[in-house]
Write a protein that binds this DNA or RNA. Structure first.
Lengths: 159, 159
DNA sequence: CTTGATGTAACTGGAACTGTTACATCAGGG
DNA sequence: CCCTGATGTAACAGTTCCAGTTACATCAAG
């Protein structure tokens, strides 16, 4: 199936926050971030909550509240983010338990789990090789035309 | 999220068919296979259809119809099976397109896709290292107590 | 021709995700 | 000390996907 988009949303926010910070502003609201991701602020707050619990971002409450990166973008890997927002396995086992009276049904699950775990470990290692700073660099070099001078979000009327 | 169970079901069927074949019977019906997986025959026919299109199993129609492995179990990898039954990416991109007026929203998708592809490639390589024969061996050695002498499915009253 | 299984469409129930509204909670600033 | 603006979270709606199920046309061996 098409997996969920939580990892994508979380990476997007962090990359956006890295860019915003580079432009001098380091405190952003969920609403501002939602503009770039094109989603609802509550969705972002849920996402940022996971990132906060993982120690990747910090939150400030009260008036003038907002979010800030808690680490340098080049120390945050996609694996960190994935762990923070999505704990589900990549490959699902049987929905209903297989027939225990059949030797295959009785013993296949540990065997499958072992194979799946190797694949997931491999995927995680790959995710660990890319950082938020990497994605930011790739993102900006991909379209040098428009790029970095502009405001990072559509804050035309806002700010 | 928890991914679907198609890969698991497909591997299960093929491992079960490998065992059945080793016991002398090489033509099985979707109903018999469904007993071991503990699911509905139609679900298995859908699954086996994909495996057939991928050349992993053969089907015989008409009276006395059934399914048979088209390759040796030690030449069928989990990657072959995964490709046959599930073409979805492991990591989903944005559900709604991100804001194109934001430099991040405009350029992040190719950057993400590249990172995701590396992770998927790594996972696929791992899946390619395990064969149906491997899973069969692991499955049977996991519970040597009951194991191989019995009938592979619960054909107690049936047969 | 009979028979038994495949191939597939159509539908159901349930689960998961995203989006949305609503509201309690919090802390900074006047 | 209250006012303000944002967070944190519950609750719900709309979609989409998945597995299960029924139904039936199709096929080929005997």
């Amino acid at each position: 199936m098409a997996a969920n988009s939580r990892l994508t949303v979380a990476v997007h926010v962090l990359v956006w926050m890295a860019l915003v910070r580079r432009l001098g502003r380091d405190l952003v609201t969920s609403e501002q971030a939602a503009e770039s991701v094109n989603t609802n602020p509550v969705v972002l707050r849920r996402c940022l909550g996971g990132l906060r619990r993982a120690g990747l971002v910090e939150v400030r409450h009260g008036a003038g509240a907002g979010w800030r990166l808690a680490r340098n973008p080049d120390t945050i890997t996609l694996l960190d983010i994935h762990r923070a927002v999505d704990g589900e396995p990549l490959f699902g086992l049987h929905r209903a338990a297989p027939n225990p009276a059949c030797p295959i049904g009785a013993g296949i699950r540990p065997a499958l789990q072992q194979a799946y775990e190797e694949a997931e470990t491999a995927a995680r290692s790959a995710l660990a090789r890319t950082t938020v700073a990497d994605v930011l660099r790739e993102t900006l070099t991909a379209r040098p035309a428009q790029a970095v001078g502009d405001e990072p979000s559509t804050t035309h009327s806002k700010d």
